[in-house]
């Protein structure tokens, strides 16, 4: 059963890995992905993430459940932040544990592709006096066809 968190607070990757792995010595592969707030040539002041409380957690649990059915994972962790973040801040963390690297790599890749296209989050960029909602990218939809 995957561990899902939707939170405003930051996360610590090493402590998340340690908690997920515990004392399980069957783990031979740990893949993590961290998404961070990307600056736009030094102009981005902040980024605000809005989400749909209730549905967000359900969607993340559903996606993680699919990953756990498809690949032999020994652990799965998803953390997604919301609220106002600064350039360089962490946004999202995915950790996949398995006996071998292939399953862990694929599961983490799959989780990020699905999360981007179905978890109900919306990003707004603050640049100077302007505020812009980030537009969804078509390539995020086409990325799903890989799976």
């Amino acid at each position: 059963m995957a561990l899902i968190s939707v939170q405003s607070e930051d996360f610590d990757i090493n402590s998340e890995i340690a908690t997920l792995k515990g004392d399980n010595k069957d783990v031979g592969a740990i893949v993590t992905f961290t998404g961070t707030v990307r600056d736009i040539g030094g102009t981005l002041q902040s980024m605000t993430l809005e989400h749909y409380p209730g549905m967000t957690e359900k969607e993340l649990e559903r996606i993680a459940g699919v990953a756990e059915e498809r690949w032999p994972l020994l652990g799965c962790r998803v953390i997604h932040r919301f609220g106002t973040l600064a350039p360089g801040d962490n946004i999202v963390l995915v950790i996949a544990l398995s006996t071998h690297r292939e399953a862990a790599f694929k599961a983490a890749d799959f989780l990020m592709d699905y999360l981007k296209s179905s978890a109900p989050f919306w990003k707004k960029e603050q640049i100077g006096e302007d505020e812009n909602w980030v537009q969804a990218k078509e390539k995020d939809e086409t990325a799903l066809k890989r799976w």
Binding site: Y52, K116, S117, F121, W122, V134, A136
Partner: peptide, 10 residues
């Protein structure tokens, strides 16, 4: 019922 634009998380 929730109505929203395409999502942009991750």
């Amino acid at each position: 019922i929730a109505i929203f634009p395409p999502v942009t998380g991750g």
